[in-house]
Amino acid sequence: MQLGNFSISLSVKDLNASEDFYKKLGFTVFGGDKEQNWLILKNGDTVIGLFQDMFPNNMLTFNPGWNNEAQSLEDFTDIRELQRNLKSQGIEFLSEAEPEGQGPASFMLADPDGNPILFDQHVS
């Protein structure tokens, strides 16, 4: 089961202050839109997302179909297949992708400690 690119999505209080802090740690802006209150930063292969007023908690994020450069992979496990596999193992979902179809979709679950995990596929 290929989960795709991994990043941590941080719910921040002040996007500018967080951007400045992570730049001091060697991160550079890789994507996002400050006017929409979110940025994606990278340091080597490490990816973090900064999200102001978008999510209540920090969360783990997987992007099926993407590598760590946000480039599409030719071979990957579709999000709907991931969802079916996890459901068959008894995993409970906070939100689900439509079970049929193709292309972009997402679902969310939580680990045993309540940490949210977002699976967010952007590619077909």
Rank of each mutant, 00 (worst) to 15 (best):
Q2V: 02
Q2Y: 08
Q2F: 13
L3E: 01
L3M: 14
G4T: 03
N5F: 08
N5Y: 09
S7E: 15
S7F: 07
I8E: 06
S9K: 11
S9F: 03
V12T: 01
V12Q: 00
K13A: 09
L15E: 04
A17R: 14
A17N: 09
A17W: 06
E19N: 11
E19T: 10
D20P: 00
F21A: 10
F21L: 13
F21D: 00
Y22G: 02
Y22E: 01
K23G: 02
K23A: 13
K24L: 10
K24V: 04
L25G: 03
F27R: 08
T28Q: 06
V29A: 10
V29C: 09
V29Q: 14
G32E: 04
D33A: 11
K34T: 06
E35K: 14
E35P: 00
E35A: 15
N37C: 15
W38Q: 01
I40W: 11
L41F: 13
L41Q: 05
G44H: 11
T46I: 15
T46N: 13
V47L: 15
V47K: 13
I48M: 03
G49F: 12
L50H: 06
L50I: 08
Q52P: 07
D53N: 15
M54S: 08
M54W: 11
P56W: 10
M59E: 08
L60D: 01
L60V: 15
T61P: 00
F62N: 01
F62R: 04
N63P: 00
N63C: 06
P64R: 13
N67M: 14
N67Y: 11
N68M: 07
E69S: 12
L73Y: 06
L73I: 07
E74H: 07
E74Q: 05
D75E: 15
D75Y: 11
T77C: 11
T77N: 01
D78M: 12
D78W: 13
I79W: 06
I79N: 03
I79G: 02
R80T: 02
E81F: 07
E81M: 12
Q83G: 08
Q83C: 03
R84K: 12
L86A: 05
K87Y: 01
Q89P: 02
Q89W: 03
G90W: 01
I91H: 04
E92S: 11
E92K: 12
F93L: 12
F93R: 12
L94F: 12
S95Q: 09
E96R: 05
A97K: 02
A97M: 00
G101P: 08
Q102W: 05
Q102A: 13
G103P: 06
G103F: 09
P104A: 07
S106D: 05
S106P: 00
F107I: 02
M108A: 14
M108H: 04
M108Y: 06
L109D: 01
A110D: 01
A110W: 04
A110L: 03
A110V: 06
P112W: 15
G114M: 06
N115M: 07
I117D: 00
L118T: 00
L118G: 00
F119Q: 01
D120K: 04
Q121W: 04
Q121H: 08
H122R: 14
H122T: 13
V123K: 09
V123N: 05
S124N: 14
S124E: 15
